[in-house]
Amino acid sequence: MAGEEGKIDPMYQFTIKPLFGSAQWEVAGVNIAFTNSALWMMIATIVLILFVRAGTKQDLIPGRWQMAVESLTGFIENMVEANIGKEGRKYVPYVFTLFTFILFANLLGLMPLGIVGIHPFTFTSHFTVTGILAILSFSIVLAVGFWKHGLKFFGLFVPHGTPLLMTPLIAPIEFISFMVRPFSLALRLFVAMMAGHLLLEVLASFVVSGGLGGVGTGLIVSLPSMLLMIAICALEILVAGIQAYVFALLTSLYINDAEHLH
């Protein structure tokens, strides 16, 4: 948390550090250092697997964990089916993984583990990570589109009922809006997560600085900042869910475009 010379740098929390002396790990000349980011990806994966595993007991009468997991899969299934239709079932594993992976990453990043000395790293606040997830979704859309419709997939850029005269104008616009999708997908999640953590960090620095400044500033600055932090923490939990949902929802909407071409 603390940067150089005791000054609090709110961006420091996003710094990536190689762990276990793995800075020079390489595969085929590419650096694959096991960083704190990778560590939290691993933790998210493990927690996710443990959570869903608790729901695969296949009991006829579900227990609490099974109920939780079933309502989560049911939620994703409904969403996919509502957006893509019956053919959407085959995308449920991907959309479910996407949603839960992002959700667990966001929530784990919010865990107040700093008080026991563990500093959670929110890897969804890195453009690299959200970008790769967005490109993954976008590649699936492209692959499905071209595999199902071949060159007709380009018909996506000419919405149904466009007058022939308008086609040269509409098609580039549609093309640009199509190409912007992965960026909007990635930026939305990245910005939302980063902004939330940044805000919390800035407010936390207010609390600390105000407290250090004496009782007066402590009461005027620290206390309101602390209360605001509590409120924003609640908001961040909401944002964690909403951003994961939006990512999964938009992915399924885009897949629907690829499946059905408008």
Binding site: A33, A38, T45, V52
Partner: peptide
């Protein structure tokens, strides 16, 4: 390294959770 580990862990999640458990 981010890309590599993300693909590794997202892949594990996808195959174990998405394909296996869901």
């Amino acid at each position: 390294s981010q890309a590599f580990w993300l693909l590794v862990f997202f892949g594990i999640s996808f195959f174990v959770v998405g394909r296996g458990m869901v």
